[in-house]
Amino acid sequence: MKLKKLPIKAGVSNRHVHLSQEHLEILFGKGYELTPIKDLGQPGQYAAKEKVILVGPKGAIEGVRVLGPVRKATQVEISKTDAFKLGVNPPIKDSGDHEGSVGLTLVGPKGTVILERGVILAKRHIHMTPEEAEAFGVKDKDIVMVYCEGTGGRKTIFDDVLVRVSKSYALEFHVDTDEANAAMLSNNDPVYIIEEL
Rank of each mutant, 00 (worst) to 15 (best):
P90L: 12
A83G: 10
T129A: 10
V138L: 14
G44R: 06
K141Q: 15
H98D: 14
G152N: 14
R71V: 14
K155R: 15
E131G: 12
R154C: 00
S101G: 12
G137Y: 07
K58I: 11
L40P: 04
V64F: 00
Y169C: 11
P69D: 09
G103F: 03
L121D: 02
A73L: 15
E116P: 04
G153T: 03
F158W: 01
H127D: 11
H127S: 10
L115H: 03
L162R: 13
G56D: 07
A135R: 12
D94N: 07
V138Q: 12
D82W: 00
I37C: 06
A135K: 14
K167T: 15
R154A: 01
K58M: 14
L121M: 05
E77K: 00
A47E: 11
Q42H: 04
F158H: 00
K85V: 08
V161D: 03
G41W: 03
L104Q: 04
F84L: 15
G59N: 05
V76G: 10
V107P: 00
G87V: 07
G137Q: 11
P57G: 04
A133L: 13
V55K: 13
T151D: 08
P130H: 12
G108L: 05
D159F: 00
D39L: 07
P69K: 03
L121N: 01
Q45A: 09
V146P: 02
G100A: 06
T81A: 14
E77I: 02
T151A: 15
V161P: 02
G153N: 02
P43M: 05
Q45M: 09
S95H: 10
K93V: 06
C148I: 04
G137N: 11
K85R: 06
A83M: 11
D159N: 03
T156H: 03
D82I: 02
V52R: 00
K110E: 14
D82R: 00
S95M: 11
F173D: 10
I92M: 10
L54S: 04
D82Q: 00
V144E: 08
H125M: 14
I114Q: 08
I114C: 05
A48G: 02
